[in-house]
């Protein structure tokens, strides 16, 4: 029973990270129809920003975290301006492939400018301390992950429901042309979507880096694939779907770690993807997605 509770929290905390990443993907997708394959590289950006600052002698973890979040948000805005604006009105495949090119560029920039080998970022390792709560062993990080993610989601909901630009973003998901006719600037709406997606990704990135204590140029690939899976599971473009999909994925992953013997550890990721494939076969539109028949009006 102890074990079960501990693993359940573990699942939720890993799932929270996936949810944050998946939310960023879903926001950008719903507003401008772009499948941002480069989303995982935001983790790398956060990691290398922290690494660079730490190398220059800034070791205060709080400052590092703030700096990483600011950098990632900025990079997200720059990418939107430089790479994704030219393909804004192109078919989804073009956007997907552009994003995939941007991802390759970022990965190789890390590789070229720092090192192909993993680098240690130990500044946040203090978060892995174990604390005892009601007889169970948890790490501070697990509480932070679940707590901060909840706050971030609450903040996002407030932003989308309570502000004018949030309203515009929700409307843009349905009909961008009308949003522009109402006098909202398309550039501002899309840039905001990217900034939010970068901000959410940077929070997830900090947790990832705190867990691993190290960074490498290709660290973003697997998390972003998982975030995609979370999105597809929940129904692509649906924000609640992204959260549910992410949490479900985290739980499934922890369940597999617990159930699969060490000998089959290599099949963990494979099994996650297999389960997702099976779910999609029976619910192609995802868990919270609405079934769309060909020719349905999407709005």
């Amino acid at each position: 029973m102890d074990y079960l509770i501990e693993q359940a929290l573990n699942g939720f905390s890993i799932g929270a990270q996936y949810s944050l990443l998946a939310l960023g993907l879903a926001i950008v997708f719903s507003v401008m129809g772009l499948v941002n394959f480069a989303h995982g590289e935001f983790i790398g950006v956060a990691g290398y920003a922290m690494f660079a600052m730490a190398a220059m002698g800034m070791t205060d973890p709080w400052l590092l975290v703030v700096f990483a979040m600011a950098t990632v948000t900025l990079v997200a805005l720059v990418l939107e301006r430089v790479a994704f604006r030219p393909v804004r009105n192109a078919p989804p495949t073009t956007g997907l492939l552009t994003a995939f090119g941007v991802g390759i560029i970022l990965q190789n920039l890390f590789l070229l400018m720092v090192s192909p080998r993993p680098k240690a970022v130990p500044e946040l390792s203090a978060l892995n301390q174990t604390v005892e709560v009601a007889g169970h062993n948890f790490t501070i990080l697990q509480f932070l992950e679940v707590g901060v993610t909840s706050v971030a989601i609450a903040g996002l909901v407030w932003f989308l429901k309570g502000t004018r630009i949030g309203l515009a973003m929700r409307a843009a998901a349905l009909d961008f042309t009308t949003v522009r006719l109402m006098g909202m600037r398309a550039n501002r709406v899309i840039a905001t979507a990217f900034a939010i997606s970068g901000l959410l990704a940077s929070i997830a990135a900090i947790f990832f880096i705190a867990r691993r204590g190290a960074i490498d140029p290709f660290m973003g690939l697997l998390p972003v694939l998982k975030a995609f899976v979370a999105c597809v599971l929940g129904g692509f473009g649906s924000l609640p779907g992204a959260v549910v999909g992410g949490l479900l994925l985290g739980l499934v992953e922890v369940l597999l770690i617990v159930l699969l013997p060490d000998k089959l550890a290599g099949l963990r990721d494979a099994s996650v993807f297999l389960i997702v494939g099976v779910i999609l076969v029976f619910r192609p539109q995802g868990i919270l997605g609405r079934r769309v028949e060909l020719g349905d009006k999407t709005a």
Binding site: A83, P91, T98, G101, V102, I105, Q107, N108, L111
Partner: peptide, 21 residues
């Protein structure tokens, strides 16, 4: 300059997509 070929690969993809999708 390790990673240069990968970098160029990415730049080519993005350029092709932006200018001649």
């Amino acid at each position: 300059m390790l990673g240069l070929s990968g970098l160029m690969l990415g730049v080519i993809i993005v350029a092709v997509m932006c200018f001649r999708s």
